[in-house]
């Protein structure tokens, strides 16, 4: 099992903007470099690119959840 960790502290978002579909849904496969969400740090937005590959992604952080740097965002098989 692999984990995707937050590279930054801030607020985690699962979609590019409100009302748009999530970058990834639970169960999707993830390749290295895939964008899986955004982190908002001090009003600027940064894409979270996965550094690991896997299948059956399961998000452990909710949309709009405050996260610390290094916090787990999702598990992968």
């Amino acid at each position: 099992m692999a984990q995707i960790l937050s590279p930054l502290p801030g607020t985690f978002y699962r979609s590019p903007s409100p009302g748009q579909p999530a970058y990834k849904n639970d169960g999707d496969s993830v390749a290295v470099g895939d964008v899986i969400g955004l982190i908002e740090v001090m009003k600027s937005f940064h894409e979270v690119k996965s550094e690991v590959a896997g299948s059956n992604v399961r998000f452990t952080a909710d949309n709009e959840e405050p996260v610390m740097a290094g916090a787990p965002l999702a598990d992968l098989d």
Binding site: L8, P9, G10, T11, E40, V41, M42, K43, P66
Partner: peptide, 12 residues
């Protein structure tokens, strides 16, 4: 102040 943690949620 010394030791203050600047939170990431607001402006800079």
């Amino acid at each position: 102040y010394p030791g203050y943690q600047v939170p990431p949620f607001y402006d800079s």
